[in-house]
């Protein structure tokens, strides 16, 4: 223990002035970066009189479990067991991450590396649709989903998520940077397009792919829209939707704030877990992604 401390201290000494300043700056900046997480964790344990303090505080002064009890009490009253909502959300988000990432990458590859006729048109369409807020298309989407007959099915949750323009856009820009010689070499060695895609393009673009996976998980995990619009049966709705109904339906705004704070934390934690799992791929592979 002492040895390790000593070694760390010596490492600090070994840094030059510039590195020390840099370290200090980074520490200050990362404190700000971490604030929202500190806030959300503390918020869930605040007693009622602290929840409504203005301006809000980051740290809880007298932590209590009262909010958790409140949430448990409310969920005990619901007609459908909470596990069912949880299962729906996990199932949908898991599939959504796989499908969205795969579909985006598959689409981005020909756009970046095969200048097929009309690729400019396709890419322009993608960039244009990036600029639309999803709220605009709610009603037409409802019509499409009901016409397709996928109301009340898992397809209704999944399919509208599939077309994520930002995914294709980010991946295409990354794939543009892969040297053609790398792909040519693989083709000469007898790899077909799919092998090139799977063995070379995807590993080289891993940071972007993992970023898309994180974004896809977030958008599907926190999605309440498809449950509200496309799902009639209570058993088909998502966990995020369920938690949001706990607090939205009440006339009294104050009543369920404690449970809402806990619900926000519960909704946030999976995001954090997925992030922790995937960020390793994002950050570690950047160093030796093999470009050039």
């Amino acid at each position: 223990m002492r040895l390790r401390l000593w070694r760390r201290a010596s490492r600090l000494h070994a840094m030059d002035g510039f590195q020390k300043v840099l370290l200090l700056l980074m520490i200050v900046l990362s404190v700000f970066m971490l604030l929202p997480i500190v806030y959300i964790f503390n918020h869930a344990f605040k007693p009622y009189h602290e929840l409504f303090v203005y301006p809000p505080t980051f740290f809880v002064k007298e932590p209590v479990l009262q909010n958790w009890n409140e949430l448990v009490a409310v969920t005990a009253r619901s007609t459908v067991p909470m596990v069912r909502y949880l299962f729906n959300s996990v199932f949908i988000s898991g599939l959504a991450v796989l499908l969205v990432t795969a579909a985006s990458a598959l689409c981005a590859y020909p756009l970046a590396k095969h200048r097929f006729p009309g690729y400019k048109l396709v890419f322009a369409a993608i960039i244009l649709t990036l600029m639309f807020a999803p709220e605009v298309v709610q009603i037409p989407r409802y019509l499409v989903v009901s016409q397709l007959g996928i109301m009340n099915t898992y397809f209704g949750h999944l399919l509208p998520l599939m077309a994520m323009p930002i995914g294709v856009f980010l991946l295409k820009q990354f794939m543009d940077q892969i040297p053609n010689a790398l792909l040519e070499a693989a083709r000469i060695d007898g790899a077909n397009e799919f092998t090139v895609f799977l063995r070379i393009v995807i590993p080289v673009c891993k940071p972007a792919v993992a970023t898309i996976a994180i974004l896809a998980f977030q958008s599907s995990w926190g999605n309440t829209e498809s449950s509200a619009l496309f799902m009639m049966d209570e058993e088909m709705k998502s966990f995020a939707f369920y938690l949001s109904t706990l607090t939205n339906n009440l006339a009294n705004n104050v009543a369920m704030q404690g449970a809402a704070a806990v619900a926000a934390l519960i909704l946030f934690v999976p995001n954090l877990i997925v992030f922790v799992i995937l960020q390793g791929k994002v950050i570690a592979t950047m160093a030796h992604s093999g470009i050039k």
Binding site: A103, L159, M162
Partner: peptide, 10 residues
């Protein structure tokens, strides 16, 4: 796969 989703839902 992406294009179909795009056309139908976007």
């Amino acid at each position: 796969p992406w294009a179909i989703g795009f056309l139908v839902f976007v």
